[in-house]
Write a protein that binds this DNA or RNA. Structure first.
Lengths: 203, 203
DNA sequence: CTAGTCGTGGCACCGAGTGTCAAGAGATGC
DNA sequence: GCATCTCTTGACACTCGGTGCCACGACTAG
């Protein structure tokens, strides 16, 4: 009951923020502007979001856990490139499901790529995902993540593919090409990802 | 003449900052602490460094340009993995040349990896390098960096290898292993980097 | 000795983010 | 219905990073 109200307030804040940020740009909007538009106090804003950047980046909060869970759900017999591509594709496809959700996601993507401060936060988030992915890949292939560079770098390559897709997405127009972009990006890193099976058996 | 004094002041500031930051931690040291230790005014600090993070990150300013220049200097007949590994190895080896310079570099590396704010800046710097590397790789292989994902991802993979080396460097003890770490890291991404020659001729 | 230039310090200011406290809205118990 | 307890909110004050502005002092040219 109180939880719904909390979510409602957060949504109100987030919508007001996204609208202002997308139109005026990140740096030209202060937190006071946002709370004025949402009709709340400055202090309340920081109770719901840890920082101004957080309003935008929190948008991708669940995506990370979904990716990890998706990877864990893939059968271990699958080559790394395939398992990782599927794990990343699921939340990416979810973004394009709902019409308004997709448009908002593109706004967020643009905003993140255009704003240095947000880009930095997005990169930090990526690093968190990479840590989790590294751990998952380590157990998946029975490797020590501290000594063997493969798990960390495999996770990094998957994120690199994901980042490339995100970079090309707002630029192009069609949404259907998202799948194609994803396939092409993962195809580039696939040779290195799947070279594990040989080097693993060898080393 | 005046240039030497500028450099002298900057060094003074940087040394004082690094000493405090390394011992007390990044967040526990204010700019006022730094300028007090260096015997200068707060305003002067920001004339030499754009931000508190900049004191640490500027340490790696020249490295990026060196890497790009190093890549441009490699013969085009070289496979991408070899050319990139050499380009990254040169400034990395330079860090280990001078004794004190090496120790300071390790302090900086630790500081960057341990501090979220600095880590974010380092990632931003990496992105700048990636842009330059992408452009260089694009002309190097006659590809369009906007449509073909390879240049961007190849640059990203090289940086991923570099980042992995930096991550493993302060953890281990020996400096001689730096070359070994670099070789191993680049060996992981080499299959994807050198798959270009086949896909390029095919596509 | 004077005039122009440049680095510097001091000051005021903005914006992000935090701690603290009082007031109000509900839910609960009598 | 009323007291009470809790949870959220708003307001104020404060710290700190960062910037604009201006005046002072040093250094140089004529």
């Amino acid at each position: 009951m109180a939880e719904r109200k909390r979510q409602l307030v957060a949504d109100e804040l987030r919508d007001a923020a996204l609208m202002l940020l997308a139109t005026r740009g990140f740096d030209a909007v202060t937190v006071d502007d946002i709370v004025a538009a949402a009709g709340m106090s400055r202090r309340t804003f920081f109770r719901y979001f840890a920082s101004k950047e957080d309003v935008v980046v929190q948008f991708l909060a669940d995506m990370g856990t979904d990716i990890i869970a998706g990877l864990a759900a893939r059968p271990r017999t699958e080559p790394p490139s395939v398992a990782l591509r599927h794990a990343f594709w699921v939340p990416l496809a979810a973004c394009t499901d709902h019409e308004d959700h997709a448009e908002r996601a593109r706004i967020v993507a643009r905003l993140i790529l255009d704003t240095p401060a947000l880009h930095a936060r997005w990169l930090e988030r990526q690093i968190q995902w990479r840590s989790a992915l590294t751990a998952e890949l380590a157990v998946r292939h029975s490797l020590d993540p501290d000594t063997d560079p493969y798990p960390r770098m495999a996770a990094g390559m998957a994120l690199l593919a994901f980042d490339t897709v995100l970079h090309q997405w707002p630029a192009g127009g069609d949404e259907q090409r998202l799948a194609e972009l994803t396939d092409r990006a993962f195809a580039v890193v696939a040779p290195a990802l799947d070279a594990l099976t040989a080097s693993h058996n060898a080393g």
